[in-house]
Amino acid sequence: MATFNVHVTIENKPGISDPEGDTILNDLVLKGAHKTVSKIKTAKMLKFTIKEKDKKAARSKIQKICDELRIYNPMVSTVTIDVFNA
């Protein structure tokens, strides 16, 4: 068994609006001098620390947790899972 840090990023699916990201872009960033930014998307990240036998097992375990416990609502959101060695 090894320890892994797993980052779970939850964000709205493509095509689903993200009013918070849009407001931060239009009313904060673009109003300053930073005109090269074209998109901001908000997301929520959960950082898990987990003991599993390998990276693959860690990933599938976390995916299962996310699905089973409705950590994200697949109606509107997607999750991206990144696994790192602790």
């Binding site: 709205n12 689903i16 609006s17 993200d18 009013p19 407001t23 109606m75 509107v76």
Partner: peptide, 12 residues
């Protein structure tokens, strides 16, 4: 088909 979900934007 569960595609009819809307994202709220109370600020707008």
């Amino acid at each position: 088909d569960r595609s009819a979900v809307q994202i709220p934007d109370p600020f707008i």
